[in-house]
């Protein structure tokens, strides 16, 4: 019975020891990872300067695309806006909007 109990508990003890060592290792990470982007810098926001101008531009140049753009998720809208800031043409913007809309 003692052997049985020991055998029964052994895997759990090993697992706990493994977990303890893994957890202890996290203490060795000093500061943020070198390639980390913080939440604000990494996330595009509709509050970015120029977003309203982009909306007006899209509405005027391609009302249909604007309509679909409005149906995208906030993250998808931010992505499209980012592509616009990167210099994507209106044609490219329209393609991205439709692709994202169809794959929602």
């Amino acid at each position: 019975m003692v052997v049985g109990l020991a055998a029964g508990f052994a895997p759990a003890a090993v697992a706990d020891a493994y977990l303890d060592m893994i957890e202890a290792e996290t203490e060795k990470i000093a500061g943020p990872l070198p390639t980390v982007v913080d939440g604000e810098a990494g996330a595009e926001s509709e509050e970015d300067a120029g977003f309203q101008e982009f909306l007006a531009y899209l509405k005027e140049e391609s009302l249909g695309s604007y309509t679909f753009f409005e149906k995208l998720t906030p993250a998808q809208r931010s992505e499209v806006f980012e592509r616009h800031k990167q210099g994507a043409s209106l044609e490219q913007i329209r393609e991205i909007i439709m692709e994202r809309f169809l794959k929602r």
């Binding site: 060795k28 990470i29 000093a30 500061g31 990872l33 070198p34 390639t35 982007v37 939440g39 990494g42 996330a43 595009e44 998720t73 906030p74 993250a75 998808q76 931010s78 992505e79 980012e82």
Partner: peptide
Amino acid sequence: VHQGKSVKVQRVQDPNYELRGY
């Protein structure tokens, strides 16, 4: 999309970048 926000995934643009840290 990460936790509801759009995150741009790219590589470090410095060709001399060397990994440091943990």
